[in-house]
Design a protein around this nucleic acid. Sequence first.
DNA 1: TAATTAAAGACAACAAGAGTCTTTAATATC
DNA 2: GATATTAAAGACTCTTGTTGTCTTTAATTA
Lengths: 137, 137
Amino acid sequence: MKYSNATNYALHTMLHLMREPNENAVGVQELAEMQKLSPTYLSKILTKLTKAGLIESAPGAKGGYKLARNQNDPSFYDVIKAIEGEANLFDCTIHHEGCLIEKTMRQAEENMKRELQGKRLSDLIKEVEQHKKAQRR
Amino acid sequence: MKYSNATNYALHTMLHLMREPNENAVGVQELAEMQKLSPTYLSKILTKLTKAGLIESAPGAKGGYKLARNQNDPSFYDVIKAIEGEANLFDCTIHHEGCLIEKTMRQAEENMKRELQGKRLSDLIKEVEQHKKAQRR
DNA sequence: TAATTAAAGACAACAAGAGTCTTTAATATC
DNA sequence: GATATTAAAGACTCTTGTTGTCTTTAATTA
Ligand code: SF4
Ligand code: SF4
């Protein structure tokens, strides 16, 4: 059981776009180069982020990707959900009435999810800034 | 990203063995039949549980599996770890110094793990007993 | 010795993830 | 309108991990 690499790529891309000044559109080839990925593969991942409403895309010359204006400070979970989906990690197909195994596993999963929902990408950017400031002294 | 079915089978088997009176050894064919599994496949799973020290096995006639005497009230996490291993769910191979993405993902994962460590199989047995008692009234 | 049972390993089937290539559609610029 | 640019979509391959089967070996009891 692992997070897919695609989730990693999605997080990096989101963070990169957040640092991009004044809503500048960035092409997939630039984003791919930065992560040493093939552009077509990254394109698929970005399409998922677009459909999830986290970023906006524009085709054609001067097109590319930028953060969705409509987006309100996405959390780690928002990004992960866009890539991994929101199916339960533990999913017994039988679903016996009042099953305590499922209940326990779901609750543990919720604890992870809650942490990921509470952490926003912007928090991480802020932490990096503070770290830099502290080092400069 | 999903828990493997093997984890589910392992949990069911452990719970079954905990209900077995006075350390009676149970054969793999009985355990497999209960879960509608092939005995040879379940056997592999049980070998993992044995190596993890959660159960004891004995070959030969009158052999089979029973809870390890040495075991002290295993948690859900103990069983899961025996099957899934203990690698991190998010594992970027690069490991940049002070990476905040990894830090965030690890912390979330820890929250799930902590819940699973806190919950023991015996807790679940107790809950079932209490539920039955409540219904009997 | 014979019957029983777990362990080990080779192997096959399947599913999901990772990645490539090609075609299509939308957009800007000239 | 023609051309260049760029995202989206789909078919396809490759690899990896999970699931499962089959056979052989080793240990134990009776
Ligand atoms: S008891 Fe729970 S986990 Fe087990 S088979 Fe029923 S629903 Fe699934
Ligand atoms: S920043 Fe963190 S997650 Fe990103 S490549 Fe470096 S170590 Fe990996």
